[in-house]
Design a protein around this nucleic acid. Structure first.
Lengths: 130, 130
DNA sequence: GCTTGACCCTCCAGTTGCGGGAAGCCCCAT
DNA sequence: ATGGGGCTTCCCGCAACTGGAGGGTCAAGC
């Protein structure tokens, strides 16, 4: 399989796939013409990566998960730990965003949004958030 | 005021303040010794920026907001539009994160997390998300 | 046999919003 | 005069790619 094939099959752009090879996440073979030659194994890894990335795992998390994925002697506890840590980061991010949303929404609600220059949003940004 | 002073007063690191000057968000004067000389006006802007950034506005949004802040002929509708657009981006981000959280949480819950290698999390990542 | 177009390759630069660190002034206190 | 801050500029690096330049390869059609 060429890069275009695995790109279509995994949904990852060719650029991303080359990047994943650069940083050592996958190691496709090479054809005599210099083209990358992907095996099923490589495609499986790319699918794995695509799904892990879509769940928000960092590249380094993905590297760890891929290693665990390939290690027959892993323990599920190790995997769960990585996932739980990531879950907490997500929760933290959601909390942050909700706090932003809260404050921002108050400002937006207070703003009449007409042709006049008077604006509670700018006022809110220019004076301390109590 | 030197950069250290406005840094303490605004809570922004000196590096950030220099960066904001680099990209033209603030234009402090210069003392004869080459030090940046911040006026009250500059400090106000930095405080404004610190608050806008803490609400998640991008630098370009901040640039727009600062321009509106300084424009006596602005309309509050213009400001509100920027804020509402940002609010939608935040909501979108929250939705994405919640979806991730959902899926990830199911996987974590399904994983017993013991010494055995069998792991629903890895299984979930290696087979299509239905 | 030649051209065309779709692939593929590498390498370099840019993105966002800074942070780290080097190398070198400046200023004040001892 | 010497030490310790503080200030300056400059350049590199981060994450995770994306875009583009410049060039080789392959298969089909004429």
């Amino acid at each position: 399989m060429n890069i275009g094939d695995v790109s279509r099959l995994s949904g990852l752009p060719p650029k991303t796939i080359r990047y994943y090879e650069d940083i050592g996440l996958i190691k496709p073979l090479r054809s005599s013409n210099g083209y990358r030659a992907f095996r099923d194994k490589d495609l499986h890894k790319l699918n794995f990566l695509a799904r892990a990335r879509s769940l928000g795992f960092s590249i380094e998390d993905c590297r760890t998960l891929l290693e665990l994925y390939e290690d027959q002697d892993r323990t599920s506890a190790d995997v769960k730990k990585v996932a739980e840590t990531h879950l907490e980061r997500i929760d933290e991010k959601i909390r942050e965003l909700k706090a932003m949303r809260e404050t921002l929404n108050e400002l937006v609600d207070a703003c009449h949004g007409d042709h006049r220059p008077d604006c509670p949003i700018l006022k809110g940004l220019s004076s301390p958030t109590q």
